[in-house]
Design a protein around this nucleic acid. Structure first.
Ligand SMILES: [Mn+2]
Ligand SMILES: [Mn+2]
Ligand SMILES: [Zn+2]
Ligand SMILES: [Zn+2]
Lengths: 140, 140
DNA sequence: AGTGTTTTGCAACCATGTTGCAAATAAGTT
DNA sequence: AACTTATTTGCAACATGGTTGCAAAACACT
């Protein structure tokens, strides 16, 4: 039962269990792929206030439950983190893929972002790699 | 004289020479680093309407004069293209760097985005690589 | 200078995101 | 189960970002 897992995840991250948080976390668990703020608002059926969704996403980000994915069209998406992520310190050094056909954004967990040699003086702290094209499902 | 170069660039791209386009192009030529819409509006001293700036950037994008850079904080920046870019078909396969200290975004023209091996079924059409950290100037 | 075409500014609009505050709800205690 | 306190929520109000239609102004060409 997904409902049990949701409660566990929230408890594990020291978050009080509320209707909004449960619903949003459920959406992430059911949907494999990243969700934008507006995706969530729609899928939740207008049951929660816009502000609540923003604040919940912010909280999940801080706790390391989700990570954000920058996109070329300037609309942030969010995806669940793996278990070994926690409070700010994420381990999501994977590539993100956005499909131009279906619009889906997915985490390619198996594809690691390569190390880049930067010019002298530049220090890298975070690397984001976003590939767009046509995804597996759309390509057959 | 930068003024001459601006006129040449506009003519070369079959754009009529207007005050707004000249001013915005000048800003890009003077400033080495990417500019956001609001950067431009401020630097232009409120001399042009918001809408005009949007439309000018759109036009420059279409003509291949500039390219857009997605950022993690959801604010698009724009930077001048090299000469061999034209109408939609850009050759900017370089890495973009955003400094957490000074906020500047720069094109690392010398650093090429590496080729990535994708899982079966995925077809890549565009790759964006964004590195954040501390830049050369801020690092001394 | 006169003409047709393109660009601009304005107004009005929609989307996205933030903040302060009071009411509602969750968690811990008796 | 009722009480108490801390946290979360919804609402209103606001700020910023971005789009469109349309008339006036500026541009390019003869
Ligand atoms: Mn991811
Ligand atoms: Mn660039
Ligand atoms: Zn697809
Ligand atoms: Zn810097």
């Amino acid at each position: 039962m997904v409902n049990k897992k949701v409660d566990e995840l929230l408890k594990k991250n020291h978050l009080s269990i509320t209707g909004g948080r449960k619903k949003i976390l459920e959406l992430f668990l059911q949907h494999d792929g990243a969700l934008s703020h507006s995706d969530i608002e729609k899928k939740a059926g207008g049951k929660f206030d816009r502000v609540t969704v923003y604040r919940t996403l912010q909280t999940f980000l801080e706790k390391g439950l989700i990570h954000s994915i920058p996109t070329a069209d300037n609309s942030i998406r969010y995806a669940l983190c793996k278990d070994d992520c926690s409070g700010g310190h994420h381990h999501d050094d994977h590539v993100h893929f956005i499909c131009n056909a279906c619009g889906n954004t997915v985490c390619l967990e198996g594809v690691t972002v390569p190390t880049i040699e930067l010019p002298g003086g530049y220090v890298s702290m975070q690397v984001d790699m976003l590939i767009s094209g046509v995804c597996k499902s759309c390509n057959q």
